[in-house]
Amino acid sequence: MTTAVTSRPRSRGDSVRPFTVGALGFVLLGTGHLILSVVAASATPTQEQRDADTAMRESTFALMGLERTVLDVFNGMSIAMALLSVTCGLLILAALRHAPALVRRRTAFGWTALAASLTALAVSVLLLPPPPVVVLTVTSCAFALSLRRATTPSLGGTPGQSPPGGL
C-alpha cells in the first residue's frame, strides 16, 4: 500500500497587519508619554519631586553659547522624543497606505523599523520603567513577525531597474 503525501505550502499570512501594529505602537508610546507628562506636570509634586526639580534647575551648563538647566534639557528631550515617536509611527502608517509592497517584501524599510524598535527596547530595558518596555516589546515582535511573513525581494529584473518592493 502506497500513501501519497502532498504538502501544501503554508500561508505566510499578511505582513502588513503586524507592521501596522508596530507603527501604532510607536504612536501609542509617544502619545502616552505626552499625556503622562501633562498629568505629572499638573499633579501636586511630592517633596522628593520638588527637591529633584530644584536640583535640576540649579544645575546649568553651556553648550555652543546657550546656557540651559538640566531640567530644561530633561523636559525638552522627553517631549521631543515623544513627538518623534508619534511622527515616526504616523509616517510608517502613511507609507503602508501608499506603498504596502515596502513590507510585503523584505526591504530596508522593514529592517529599519525593527532595528529602531529593538534599539529603543534595549535602552528602555536598561533605563526606563515598564510601560515603554512593554510597548516596545510588542512593536519589536510585530515588526519581526511582519518581516518573517514577508517575501524575499527578487534580484531579477531588467538592468537599471530596482528590485520589486523598492528600498
Score class of each variant (00 low, 15 high):
R149Y: 00
T119L: 15
S37Y: 09
G156W: 01
T31D: 07
L136R: 07
T46P: 00
R148W: 14
L155R: 13
V73P: 00
L118E: 13
M56Y: 12
S7L: 13
R17H: 02
T6Q: 06
G13N: 09
L93D: 08
T20E: 14
F19L: 06
P9E: 15
A41D: 14
T44C: 06
F19D: 03
L71V: 03
P18M: 07
V38R: 12
R8N: 11
L155K: 09
A95V: 06
P18G: 07
P159D: 06
P153R: 15
P131F: 05
T2F: 12
G22M: 04
L114H: 06
S117Y: 02
E48P: 01
L29N: 12
G110F: 05
S15V: 06
C88T: 13
F61A: 11
T31I: 10
L136C: 03
L102I: 02
L155N: 08
T3D: 07
F26V: 01
T2P: 14
G160T: 10
P45E: 11
A80D: 04
A116K: 05
V134F: 09
T87E: 10
G76I: 02
S59K: 13
V133L: 02
A95G: 01
T69I: 06
S78V: 04
L91R: 08
D53L: 09
T54M: 06
V73K: 00
G166Y: 03
E58W: 04
G89H: 05
S7T: 12
M77K: 10
L136E: 02
D72N: 12
A116D: 07
L121Y: 07
T152K: 14
G30Y: 02
T3E: 11
A108V: 11
E67V: 15
T112C: 01
T137M: 02
V133W: 00
L29R: 06
